[in-house]
């Protein structure tokens, strides 16, 4: 998933970004409300982690602005305010979830995943394509009985393709989803990742699941027999 973190604490933003990237997400970080609003308007984020108390425009103001502009990206509010009225205000302003600082990173990651599932469709954490099983909860992948050892980037790519099962996904879309502002790839990186992912999926002569639509992109679908 592509995630935007709007958090004025550079150190907190840095560790959240590092952790989420380790989980295969593309994560952009900004430190004030105005920048956060600009980024959210321009980029197709799946989830925005938004601090409430921000320099310049505060988080609630950013959230209201986004909702007023019909930007329906899922927003998880991160804040030190733990009062019931603060939570209610946040949720009523259009937030999808609310997490009080300090928080466990595992909980943050689980909530981000839950919001991502809302974006991508199936609410169940296990996706099946033919004999391919992607367990998004455990972050594991197997083909038949054989577990696959995927890199973070490969897993993110497979999961993104699985979320758009049967659809042709362009290279640009893949780049937007898999790479944040700090790691913008060249054109060969996506093709290279597709290639290595195919090698792992098709080991032992298993049928091809990722098909190339020349000039259009890639599609994840059941093998053609």
């Amino acid at each position: 998933m592509r995630i935007l973190v709007v958090e004025d604490s550079q150190r907190l933003a840095q560790s959240v970004q590092a952790g989420l990237r380790k989980l295969g997400h593309a994560v952009d970080v900004v430190h004030d409300g105005d920048q956060g609003l600009s980024y959210a308007r321009v980029n197709p984020y799946d989830v925005i982690l938004l601090d409430i108390m921000l320099p310049g425009r505060d988080g609630m103001s950013v959230l209201r602005e986004l909702r007023a502009e019909d930007v329906d990206t899922h927003v998880l509010l991160l804040t030190a305010k733990d009062g019931v009225s603060d939570r209610v205000d946040g949720l009523q302003s259009g937030a999808d979830d609310y997490l009080v600082k300090p928080f466990a990173f595992e909980e943050l990651a689980a909530r981000v995943d839950a919001l991502g599932r809302r974006v991508r469709g199936p609410s169940t954490p296990v996706l099946r394509i033919d004999d391919l099983v992607i367990d998004t909860g455990a972050r594991s992948v197997r083909r038949g009985d054989r577990p696959l050892d995927l890199s973070r980037r490969e897993y993110a790519l497979l999961r993104y393709l699985a979320s758009r099962l049967g659809e042709t996904v362009s290279r640009i879309e893949i780049e937007d989803q898999l790479y944040d502002e700090d790691h913008f790839p060249n054109s060969n990186v996506v093709a290279s990742t597709i290639c290595s992912l195919r090698d792992k999926l098709e080991l032992d002569g298993a049928g091809r699941l990722i098909h190339t639509r020349r000039g259009l992109g890639y599609v994840l679908a059941e093998p053609v027999h």
Binding site: R11, L12, P102, A104
Partner: peptide, 8 residues
């Protein structure tokens, strides 16, 4: 929160 997130 900074400390906890970093350590987690």
């Amino acid at each position: 929160a900074e400390l906890r997130s970093a350590s987690d």
